[in-house]
Design a protein around this nucleic acid. Structure first.
Lengths: 220, 220
DNA sequence: CATAGTTCCGAACTATGTCAGGCAAAGACG
DNA sequence: CGTCTTTGCCTGACATAGTTCGGAACTATG
């Protein structure tokens, strides 16, 4: 219990690199075997070690899912931020921007179904993101909300509708026509539909109205 | 295997009853423990026998999921058929009928998240419905498509859009606000949005479509 | 009761997540 | 250089999972 230094750089860097390698291997495996098909022994094997050794990097399998969850949301943020850099300024061509945004979202989901499942559907048996990872998710989602606001989608109800429609398209595409574009091709139509609806409907949520719903979670 | 005589009454009836009991227990367990939390030992215990004995009724755990899948779709058919009996005749109050239909659908999904996951999201590791069960699903979905047609939703694209939106609402509700109604309350809005869009967009996919759906206003 | 068929169980095999020690290489320090 | 501590990985083992096998107990029917 001696005072440790604040500069364990060497060791810590190696550790971080190893952990990153493990996560990378985990993504590979999960894409091959499905989200629930990940096994510690396979993962160890792919990472060049035994399953038990993984526990010096992650305290449990759930912790690995958790790290993947956070990483996935960071990728999401990066991905979504990419398309909105230039045309941001102000609503010049809102529809075009909305279409681009929507396509980017659906593309993100469809391009990696397993990641979609992990991030947007709660599907792993006992897994629930840790507060830290959940915070990352919240953060990213707020960023996306801001993007929607720039497009002209404002108010909780409209935002929720937007995400529901896009998630629905993605989820149907993934579940029922993986590799095709039966639902993906509807994105343009969906955007028009949503924009029309957004314009026609008065300001939705009463602003201060009950918006605290995000906190109900339990199950077990 | 079965499928020989048409009068194995006694034994087969008992068998069927036992199998039904097992399925019922499986639903219970799955609602308590989650879809992937089902274990043969628990299921056996709940059904009054040992895990190994289950294998005289179902050849594998996947077969149990498969039976649940088919059963779930039959429930779905029943559930959806219920609300559309009377007001069918002809498009008297299409919007009201559409709203009712949509609510029924979302209610079905939300009222049993595990079933929703099994039927509409492909989420179990190696599970894929057997051809027989898949046929049931197709059948039911066709019935629902017919219902949509009565409401005025015709053409592959419109139908796909409809299912995507409703599935999106349900899936968001289940994943992010279980027990609440943050997305469920948007159903009415969604229906209006979809109906408006349906009316505005020209006939989409092929489909015979004798009497055209509506007049196309323009757009596009 | 006898016989055939059906239902069930105990034991066991394999695969999984995870814990407890152990041992050797790497780093710190004289 | 030779220690001593830390770090990184491994072997062994346990509990629980799905599943198989062989035999016991039941049921149906003569």
């Amino acid at each position: 219990m001696s005072g440790k230094d604040a500069t364990p750089s060497r060791v810590e860097a190696r550790r971080a690199a190893a952990a990153a390698g493990i996560l990378e291997a985990a993504w590979e495996l999960v894409r091959e075997q499905g989200l629930a098909g990940l096994t510690m022994r396979d993962l160890g094997s792919r990472s060049g070690m035994k399953a038990q050794s993984l526990y010096s990097y992650f305290p449990s399998k759930h912790a690995i899912y958790d790290a993947m969850f956070a990483q996935g949301y960071r990728e999401f943020a990066e991905w979504m931020a990419f398309g909105s850099e230039q045309a941001s300024s102000d609503g010049r061509a809102p529809r075009a921007e909305a279409v681009r945004n929507a396509h980017r979202y659906v593309e993100f989901c469809v391009s990696d179904p397993v990641r979609f499942q992990l991030l947007f559907l709660r599907t792993i048996p006992g897994f629930e993101p840790s507060p830290a990872s959940y915070a990352v998710a919240i953060d990213v989602l707020e960023q996306v909300t801001a993007q929607l606001a720039e497009i002209g989608v404002r108010g909780a109800k409209h935002v929720d509708m937007w995400t529901a429609v896009m998630t629905g398209l993605a989820s149907q595409q993934i579940a029922n026509d993986l590799g095709g574009n039966r639902w993906a091709r509807l994105v343009d139509d969906a955007v028009d539909m949503l924009l029309a609806h957004t314009g026609r409907t008065p300001t939705p949520g009463r602003t201060s109205a009950g918006r605290s719903t995000t906190r109900s979670r339990s199950t077990r």
